[in-house]
Design a protein around this nucleic acid. Structure first.
Length: 371
DNA sequence: TCTGGGGTCCTAGGACCC
DNA sequence: TCTGGGGTCCTAGGACCC
């Protein structure tokens, strides 16, 4: 109980008060690494990945090329586009080097993804100095790793994140504590981290276009449109009351592998699909074993020609990382899915392992019963 | 714009248990 | 006989992020 109480206090204190947060986000990360390592690519429109654009340099973006865009369209928009093959090892190494720098600038750093991090500097930087601190961070990353990085500063992770996006490329934007709502309210709701195209559209249809609209319409209306969790979160953001902690050590919750089959996936036989699945399960098994993890739930993911999806899952009595055991479950799931596959034209198969086996996995629920 | 590979979190219903 | 209040676990689908 003592531990639980200390934990609750920690969570509530750090969640209920403004902090001083930096969001540091590398610009066009994969493409910037390529331009750094090959001077011949500098100043030219670069796409990492040819089938699908995984990252586009700013020169390419100026021509309309965007990440996640099909390669054909990218080349039509930008005929002199230089397409390079991704080098994931180089990106992982560059990311490690960048976080080594970030760790020097804050006692608490959250790895948001391979190319972005949140820094809580509340306890180490006085408010008026935060701009200089952020500028020094950007200079250090540039000097030591050779990559451009943009930084947003604000009283919460969401504000810092939106600010870094507006600072790009290679910029810095500081949102002063009392300017937070003035900064957020004019923005379209879709600019908020966590409000994607589907939610933005629902809000727009209800007449809620900006964050300011969301603030005025009230918590109940937002919950009605977005559901309990997302609705309350947007309400809190719109009133400047959302203060998620910077989480330094987040544990992985799943392992997955998938393979796009293209249109030829529609003609693959059951046995060929099973063979592909076996390869994916093998890959996952190796990764899990390498990290000493095991999982109890196997999820088969399918995507079809019309981009609809389906999942089939099964939980085992005990966690395993054994590819043979996982493969046999994957096979029965594939059998379950046979009718769906036959009726819809398969274009992607994937396997995810969840229910990771960890002794310290658990949750504490505090029931408040507020009126 | 016609789409890769890796993740996280939320919602909801059903079966079961005391 | 019907029911309150408290739980667990599983499955499936969806939205979102980089």
């Amino acid at each position: 109980l003592h531990g639980a109480r200390a934990w609750c206090e920690h969570v509530f204190v750090s969640r209920s008060a403004p902090r001083l947060i930096l969001h540091a986000d590398l610009d066009a990360f994969f493409a910037s690494v390529e331009q750094r390592d090959d001077p011949g690519l500098r100043g030219r429109p670069v796409s990492v990945g040819g089938g699908v654009v995984m990252a586009a340099s700013y020169e390419a973006r100026a021509r309309g090329v965007r990440s996640a865009m099909g390669g054909g369209r990218a080349r039509r928009l930008c005929p002199d586009l230089v397409v390079v093959r991704p080098r994931f090892d180089a990106y992982v190494e560059a990311s490690r080097a960048v976080f080594a720098v970030l760790d020097r600038f804050a006692p608490r750093v959250e790895r948001g993804s391979i190319d972005e991090g949140f820094l809580d500097v509340t306890d180490v930087v006085a408010w008026p100095d935060v701009g200089a601190h952020a500028a020094a961070l950007r200079a250090a990353v540039r000097a030591e790793v050779g990559l451009p990085i943009s930084v947003g500063v604000g009283p919460s992770k969401v504000v810092a994140k939106v600010a870094s996006g507006m600072a790009k490329p290679d910029g810095l934007l500081v949102v002063e504590p009392d300017r937070e709502l003035a900064f957020l309210h004019p923005l379209d709701v879709g600019r908020i981290w966590g409000i994607g195209p589907a939610s933005a559209q629902k809000l727009h249809r209800s007449g809620i276009r900006t964050v300011g609209d969301a603030a005025r319409c009230g918590d109940a209306a937002l919950v009605a449109v977005l559901g309990r969790s997302a609705g309350r979160r947007l309400d809190a953001i719109a009133h400047g009351r959302e203060f998620q902690r910077v989480q330094t050590a987040r544990r992985r919750r799943s392992y997955g592998a998938q393979r796009a089959l293209g249109s030829r996936g529609r003609t693959l036989t059951h046995e060929e699909i099973a063979g592909t699945l076996e390869g994916l399960v093998d890959r996952i098994g190796r990764r899990m074993t390498g990290r000493g993890d095991a999982g109890r739930t196997v999820v088969l993911r399918l995507r079809f020609g019309d981009f609809t999806r389906a999942t089939r899952s099964r939980s085992l009595p005990r966690a395993t990382a054994d590819p043979a055991a996982l493969a046999s479950v994957a096979r029965t799931l594939l059998n379950d899915a046979r009718p769906v596959i036959a009726s819809r034209g398969l274009t992607l198969v994937g396997i995810t392992i969840t229910g990771l086996d960890r002794e310290d996995d658990g949750q504490l629920v505090l029931d408040l019963g507020l009126s």
